[in-house]
Nucleic acid binder design. Sequence first.
DNA 1: TACTTTTCACCTAGGTGCGAAGAT
DNA 2: ATCTTCGCACCTAGGTGAAAAGTA
Lengths: 249, 249
Amino acid sequence: EIGTEMIITKAGRRMFPAMRVKITGLDPHQQYYIAMDIIPVDNKRYRYVYHSSKWMVAGNADSPVPPRVYIHPDSPASGETWMRQVVSFDKLKLTNNELDDQGHPETIICPSPLRSFFTPCTSTSRGFHVIRKECGEELSPVRAIPAGEGTRTFSFPETVFTTVTAYQNQQITRLKIDRNPFAKGFRDSGRNRMGLEALVESYAFWRPSLRTLTFEDIPGMAKQESTNNEFYHNTDKETVFKLDQPCQG
Amino acid sequence: EIGTEMIITKAGRRMFPAMRVKITGLDPHQQYYIAMDIIPVDNKRYRYVYHSSKWMVAGNADSPVPPRVYIHPDSPASGETWMRQVVSFDKLKLTNNELDDQGHPETIICPSPLRSFFTPCTSTSRGFHVIRKECGEELSPVRAIPAGEGTRTFSFPETVFTTVTAYQNQQITRLKIDRNPFAKGFRDSGRNRMGLEALVESYAFWRPSLRTLTFEDIPGMAKQESTNNEFYHNTDKETVFKLDQPCQG
DNA sequence: TACTTTTCACCTAGGTGCGAAGAT
DNA sequence: ATCTTCGCACCTAGGTGAAAAGTA
């Protein structure tokens, strides 16, 4: 699998594709928050080496950034509401601006390594959080998500990405231009489109466009789901950042 | 005062200007819904008579329409959140489509008289509802707002409007074009702009662009505020629809 | 040199009133 | 004849990557 790249800017840039999840097994009458954050895969910094088309370790990450949580704008809502349709995080934005969104952090999430010297490739993965709404308790974008009984976190190792300020891998640029409606202005009509389907296949992020959060034990929500959490402590980068295999040239 | 006009369409049309309110006196830690609906001023239907620039009674209204409530998208939220800034209903839309929004009535509100033969002038006024969030209770766009202890309704007689499918009073058209950014393409640069400030003054809807909902007794919220509710049972239309006094010609 | 920020043309998405066409 | 609907040009608002300019 190949980790994809996400642009980060000062003003905030959307992820593409956006995370979309289907939720099953909630208590229909219980209120829930749904939130998302991103966590670093390791404490390394990476740079893209063009001649080998590989991400290489290039030092250690910056000091950790204060936690930043994106609370889905429909929160809180009943389990029934959440389960009725696909939950999309398309309004979420990535930024490298530590200051600005302290005050009004509506739709902005902060990636861990910011203003890194080289292409920041301290790749991040996402955790999904489903929090039972307790009376009076309120979630804050600038506090970490409360761990414990009512919180359950899901993560998807294959949705790893690299934060960049400019795309490094040209195949990723092609995919973004081809799939993102807002980039239509850069599309090549006809030629240069060959192999795009194959490209999509090699990027796990794109392939199953929808992921499922399944709750089998609703009332307690105590049993923590561990979908490959070892992944995040994996020191072997090669399993995360496999070499791009050039598709056309 | 002169009642303004609002376009209604099948797809739904925003009100302009949108209702904006400031809320004071809520319990900061209590959760509240805020909702809005519109109610008919009387059961008459009106038509606009051009040569006299007046709205005249032209029969009775259609049978009443099922209640439709617009729940502010930020609902539910804490009193603190609601009071922090101005609450705007700019996403609310008016429609004459009874069927379509039964299923997904997110941002659509249904005016009482629909498909009326003449210009439907069964003017409607708005009620603002602030509902304390009870545990488990959920508000529905297709049910009437629950009356009683936790609900409090405000109404502003001066914000009466007439639902139309095409503007009748040309002065209102001028005001809309001049003030609504989305109608910029129809603006006359320079001339024809004289007297617009005076026009705004004569339309109560525009004048205080912000209204206040004040709660003096928070815990019970039992005392029902009656801001000129007699108005809505007033049979003298002349107090509602005064003659437009042509400003320029 | 190696990264980051800014600006820009080009899109999507959707809110305007107008005028022609449709409906009753 | 009177009202409603639809398509349209013209806006606002904002999401793209490219390329130029900035930074260290």
